[in-house]
Write a protein that binds this DNA or RNA. Sequence first.
DNA 1: ATTATTAATTGTAAAATAAACAACAAAAAG
DNA 2: CTTTTTGTTGTTTATTTTACAATTAATAAT
Lengths: 235, 235
Amino acid sequence: MHKYSKQTRHLLAVDCIVFGFDGESLKILLIQRGFQPEKGNWSLMGGFVQQNESLDQASNRILKELTGLDGVYLEQLHTFGDTSRDPIERTISTAYFALIDIHKYEKQLSDDYHAEWFPLKNIPGLIFDHQDMVEAAKRRIRYKAALHPILFELLPDKFTIPQLQILYESVFNTTIDKRNFSKRVLATGLLIKLSEKDKAGSKRGAYYYQLNKQNYYAKFQAFLNFIPNPDTLLL
Amino acid sequence: MHKYSKQTRHLLAVDCIVFGFDGESLKILLIQRGFQPEKGNWSLMGGFVQQNESLDQASNRILKELTGLDGVYLEQLHTFGDTSRDPIERTISTAYFALIDIHKYEKQLSDDYHAEWFPLKNIPGLIFDHQDMVEAAKRRIRYKAALHPILFELLPDKFTIPQLQILYESVFNTTIDKRNFSKRVLATGLLIKLSEKDKAGSKRGAYYYQLNKQNYYAKFQAFLNFIPNPDTLLL
DNA sequence: ATTATTAATTGTAAAATAAACAACAAAAAG
DNA sequence: CTTTTTGTTGTTTATTTTACAATTAATAAT
């Protein structure tokens, strides 16, 4: 039942870039495409948008179907609409990126699905324009993480400050002074110190911290660096 | 010739939020929708994506068809994909935002087209989810302008520092100290002082400035505030 | 011609923030 | 008990940001 009867209709897809952190480096999740063309080649998790679902619903559904991941941080990135991006038939694709705690789903991913993690610095050739999507996602995650505390989504519920620092250093490909880093993150008021220690990484052990969820939401938007007195802004 | 033969096809639209600045307040451009449903009601500039054009091409074409605007700053904002956003038939729409010098096109817009400028603080009811799109565009322009010098796109080729300040103050809905503001913008190295003055706004007259295009592109990406030593980053 | 008015231009001191820098503590291994 | 390894903490300096007001240039008014 086409009401706008004269208009062309298009194929619409969703592709998901899933970031994970294993304590050493930032990785993304890839699968081998299960159908022609490019069957067997590495690909992002993608699929077509159905008639009765929103883009957000489609991205969640596709991610779950292909990896089992559910209820994770998922955010729309960009829509890729070049006419020849899919050589078979024109398809517009909206890319989403996800941030997950890599260990939380490790077993599930390798047992039930055939997804594999690849370090960002060593990504195989990807189908179509998926390489562009990954690049855009890398830029976005850096951009956003420079202003908002989203990287906590990549860590387990309990984490240590050295772990957090390694994460930041690997996302931004830099090194940060230990003293200044911990001063800085503790000053945000986002962390709650636990009495328990993580003994895995060192002899002495490092204290676990948890996110203060309340402050997390409250401070998520505090970022306008260029503008003086951001508190006086009517947002 | 449908190669992915089993898949549903969708209507795809593009909607453009055009921002302009008249020296006093930030405004957006609206038109009265020319066809049913909602004919005659205020709407963003929108249209359907054709088979043989990319999204970027579609947004440029639609903007030109409906307003005559060509070659302006246009950037993809977000894709709105709720199933019921268009009550007639499901349509996914990718929103773009544009920044233009309002005076440059003032006559053209009112003579040849029936577009009208509305101050951001006084926008009429809009069709469909266009209000959401405008809100998202406002957030994006603030976000981006806090980090990148995009607001210059809203000004004429020659502008004065007081004009620039009013623009920033109106985008961020705040007030800024004159001395600190001019120190700050001049320190960016983005401005070239001209010998000519603008006598319109005051008796004394304010010097015109121009953008230093080279520095503009070079410094556009300099923003990573959270991260120390951004120069050492491998981008 | 003098004075009044208006908006543009410019500098400095104080405060806040960020950067540089190293010693000590805790626990395990030997 | 000594060594080794990694976690934790503080101070000084430099840089950046903020707060704050007098002067200048031009026109308008008398």
